[in-house]
């Protein structure tokens, strides 16, 4: 099953569950409070997911390591390499 199908399946399952409760499709005579909680749920979930995404990406950008040390080490090694290669007879 492709990721697209997995997503469609997941979304339709949630959609069905939401429809059942919100519109009482099976005539289960659920208490009114169920309906009140259920109907704004998709929007609520979207907002929560949006916030989670922004927070996660923001946090990860802020904590993205800057490898100053690695860059310095590399620069030093480049010098060393050039000197050594010249000694070994490499003509650039």
């Amino acid at each position: 099953m492709t990721k697209l199908l997995q997503w469609l399946l997941g979304v339709s399952l949630i959609g069905i569950a939401w429809g059942l409760v919100t519109f009482d499709l099976l005539d289960l005579q659920l208490p009114a409070v169920y309906k009140e909680v259920a109907w704004p749920m998709p929007v609520y979930l979207l907002v929560v997911f949006g916030c989670y995404s922004l927070a996660t990406v923001g946090y990860r950008v802020a904590t993205f390591n800057d490898c100053e040390e690695a860059a310095k080490e590399l620069q030093a090694q480049i010098k060393e390499a050039k000197a050594d290669l010249k000694k070994k007879g490499l003509k650039m």
Binding site: V57, F64, N65, E68, A70, A71
Partner: peptide, 20 residues
């Protein structure tokens, strides 16, 4: 301990966003 060197904020944001 992974990370990058020489990326500005825009590049980091695109990278992290695309990865997410």
């Amino acid at each position: 301990d992974g990370g990058v060197y020489g990326w500005d904020l825009r590049r980091k944001l695109i990278s992290r966003g695309a990865n997410f």
